[in-house]
Design a protein around this nucleic acid. Structure first.
Lengths: 212, 212
DNA sequence: TCGCTTATGACCCAAAAGGGTTATTGCCGT
DNA sequence: ACGGCAATAACCCTTTTGGGTCATAAGCGA
């Protein structure tokens, strides 16, 4: 059976050495190379052709968030496993957006790292438990909360939806068989409830708060 | 140490019995009750007060997608672990939106079920590998694609952003030290590139296509 | 150097948006 | 039965928006 080839990006010299030692001394795994920053990702990927990359986030010059993006631009088939002390949502979702295939926190992965590398190589998505939880929570948009929060009525939602589709007051009125003046009335109420000044701003807020 | 209390929703009689047997015969776990559909979730939760619910999707009368929603409406602290043969995206994301805390495929979890129950009880989010992967992929929207697709320039994005924040042409002009006529010019170009008719529609499209 | 894109700006003009005010109807809950 | 709220509608008015047209300067790549 062919070994899994792993490259490591980690700026802490001691940790980088430990990772290399750990991975190279595990059957079925082989370190192609280790790096302390990702300024030359493209050249390094061309040279190494790893199956899996272990990527730290906090590195000087060029951080791992850019690193994962560059690797995925070079070859989307290289699996990238984030390995970081940061567990804030901004970093997490920035990495996922850029194509990270897994996300491990350094503090809870000393003996979970090797199985995680195998898992990501096999097409899985290893995540520390707290991370997986936050990822699922991102899908759990409470749905009605924003509507309740601003007291938007069903009719107002209908009007907003058409506004966001480019309908004029007149067209919205025709669509619902009501006067354009009433449409205006609804929108006036919406603007007040959302604390916005005009249509575009209302649409932006409504979409971002999942009202429409 | 107190046992983890588990309720099971599963319409297959044989499997339901097996799950009960497995869980009841594991130290630290205790079955409160098992059910073959979720028509009376609220009463059952009131009676059982489980820590964790194992929820099948394909059940007669009322499926598990509604089931998880009802349980979370009753008490958001009850952990719900989906356990199903379906691995299509529609079911998956419907469950996650409704608040599921984990998602296991029946085919690959005979001996992973107990650890998964413990993990979800402890606040984790156990997922079958293929599931976790698809969840992460949902975040991987390629970012620059839409901007490229419509040929939106950096300046146009800036203008759109302020429009979405409720700025008038005049205010945008002041912000960038350009004439409101130029702002209009930019927006005219944007509307054409996005194939929209007006500001609200442009803002809606820009947000939904992740341009802003 | 020529053509293309980007960013800039102006003028005319019609349509739309949006603020203020006032009022009626129907429904729901107390 | 009464008050509150959603939905309806009209009027006045100013500001904003957006379509059409024309024009210029800077930068960039073939």
């Amino acid at each position: 059976m062919k070994s899994i080839h792993v490259s490591v990006y980690e700026d802490n010299d001691k940790l980088r050495g430990l990772l290399e030692l750990l991975i190279n001394n595990t059957d079925g795994f082989h370190i192609t190379n280790t790096y302390s920053n990702c300024l030359n990702v493209k050249n390094e990927m061309t040279k190494d052709h790893p199956d899996v990359v272990i990527m730290d986030i906090d590195m000087p010059k060029c951080n791992g968030i850019n690193g994962v993006r560059m690797i995925k631009e070079f070859d989307v088939n290289i699996r990238v496993l984030m390995h970081t002390v940061f567990d804030n949502d901004d970093n997490l979702f920035a990495c996922l957006t850029n194509g990270a295939d897994g996300y491990l926190l350094k503090r809870d992965t000393s003996e979970q790292l090797i199985p995680a590398i195998r898992e990501v190589f096999e097409g899985g998505a290893p995540m520390s438990p707290g991370i997986a939880r936050r990822v699922l929570e991102a899908f759990h948009h409470p749905k009605e909360t924003a509507v309740d929060k601003y007291n938007i009525t069903p009719r107002e939602i209908q009007v907003l939806e058409l506004l966001a589709r480019g309908f004029s007051y007149r067209m919205i009125g025709i669509e619902f068989s009501i006067s354009p003046e009433t449409v205006k009335r609804h929108l006036k109420n919406i603007y007040q409830k959302l604390s916005v000044q005009c249509g575009p701003e209302a649409v932006a807020k409504a979409i971002r708060e999942k009202i429409i």
